[in-house]
C-alpha cells in the first residue's frame, strides 16, 4: 500500500515543506516563545529565559487585553456578522431576483461589490482614509456640505463604526458570491411545485429559499468570522488602533506588543490566543461541513 503511494507522497513533499516552514513552524515557535521572555532587542533577545505561563497570567490580568478582546468582538459582529453577512445575503437575493427579471442594474451592483473585494486591502484602507478626512474628505466636503450639514470628525468621534464600514465595503462580496452560488443550485422544480401548491412569493421564500441556504450560511459565517478576526491592514491604515485604543483589535495588539514594545514573548502569547480561538472556529467549521457532506 505504502509502496504504491510513494510517488504520490513525494508529490506532496514540496508543498508540505513550504507549509511546515511558514505555517506549522511559526505556530509552534509562537507557542514556544510565549513561554519565554524573548525580546526583540536587549539582553533578553540573546538569552531568552523560560518563564512558564507568566506571559499568559500577565496577559489575562492586562485590562488592555480585555479592551482589545471587546474591540475585536465588536468589530467581528459589526463588520462580519451584521455587515458582510447580512448585506451579502440581501444583495445575493436581490441580484438573483434581478437576474430573473433581467434588470441589468443588478449586474452593475454585483460588479461594484466585486470590485471593492478584489481591490488590494491596503488600497481599501487608503480610500477610506480619504473618504473620512475631516477637512476635505468626500463624506464631509461633498455629501454633508451638499445637505447643508456641518462636518463630522468620523474617525475621531466614531472610530469603530468607521473601520466597520470600511471593512464591510471591502469584504461583502465573499458572502454575496457564496450565496449567489447557492441560490443557483436550488432546483427550479421546487418553486414550480410550490407555486402549483398555491404558495405566494413570500411563502416560497420562507419555506424554500431560506432553508436551502441555511447549511451554506453557517459555513460562510464561520469563514468570514475567522478572516475578520485576523483583520490587520484595513484598521492599521485607517486608525492604527486609535484614537487611544478604541479600534485596537487583537492582531494590532500582537503587532504593537512585538514591534513597538519589543517583547516577543508577550506578543507570542497574544498570537497563541489568536491561533487558539481561530482553531476553535476552524474545528467548528470542519465539523459543520463534514456533517453536511
Amino acid at each position: 500500500m505504502l509502496a504504491r503511494n510513494s510517488t504520490y507522497i513525494a508529490g506532496v513533499a514540496p508543498a508540505a515543506v513550504l507549509l511546515a516552514l511558514f505555517f506549522v513552524g511559526p505556530a509552534l515557535w509562537a507557542l514556544y516563545s510565549s513561554l519565554t521572555n524573548l525580546a526583540l532587542v536587549g539582553i533578553d533577545a540573546a538569552n531568552p529565559r523560560f518563564v512558564g505561563l507568566d506571559n499568559y497570567t500577565r496577559l489575562f490580568a492586562d485590562p488592555d487585553f480585555w479592551t482589545v478582546i471587546r474591540n475585536s468582538v465588536t468589530f467581528v459582529v459589526g463588520s462580519a456578522v451584521i455587515g458582510q453577512f447580512g448585506l451579502g445575503l440581501a444583495l445575493a437575493l436581490l441580484i438573483d431576483h434581478a437576474e430573473h427579471r433581467r434588470w441589468w442594474l443588478g449586474t452593475l451592483a454585483y460588479g461594484a461589490v466585486l470590485l471593492a473585494w478584489v481591490n488590494p486591502t491596503l488600497i481599501a484602507g487608503f480610500l477610506w482614509v480619504a473618504m473620512y478626512d475631516f477637512f476635505f474628505g468626500s463624506l464631509n466636503h461633498v455629501f454633508l456640505s451638499s445637505l447643508g450639514a456641518s462636518s463630522v470628525d468620523w474617525i475621531g468621534s466614531f472610530p469603530m463604526p468607521a473601520v466597520i464600514v470600511a471593512n464591510i465595503w471591502r469584504g461583502t462580496a465573499f458572502t454575496m458570491i457564496i450565496f449567489l452560488g447557492a441560490l443557483k443550485t436550488i432546483p427550479p422544480d421546487i418553486y414550480e411545485a410550490a407555486r402549483i401548491d398555491g404558495a405566494n412569493a413570500w411563502r416560497r421564500f420562507w419555506d424554500h429559499t431560506l432553508p436551502s441556504l441555511r447549511p451554506i450560511a453557517a459555513l460562510a459565517l464561520l469563514s468570514i468570522t475567522m478572516s475578520t478576526f485576523g483583520t490587520f491592514i484595513v484598521i492599521q491604515t485607517l486608525t492604527n488602533g486609535g484614537p487611544g485604543n478604541a479600534t485596537e483589535v487583537i492582531a494590532l495588539f500582537a503587532f504593537h506588543t512585538a514591534f513597538k514594545s519589543f517583547s516577543i514573548g508577550y506578543g507570542s502569547a497574544i498570537a497563541v490566543v489568536m491561533l487558539g480561538l481561530n482553531f476553535a472556529f476552524a474545528i467548528a467549521y470542519l465539523r459543520w461541513s463534514r456533517a453536511r457532506a
Binding site: L19, F23, V24, G25, P26, A27, W29, A30, S33, S223, M226, S227, F229, G230, T231, F232, A251, A254, F255, A258, F259, I264, G267, S268, A271, M274, L275, N278, F279, F281, A282, Y285, L286
Partner: peptide, 13 residues
Amino acid sequence: LLQTMPLSATMVP
C-alpha cells in the same frame, strides 16, 4: 485548517 490560520497571528514568528 492551515488555510484559516490568520497571517497576522504568525507574522512575528
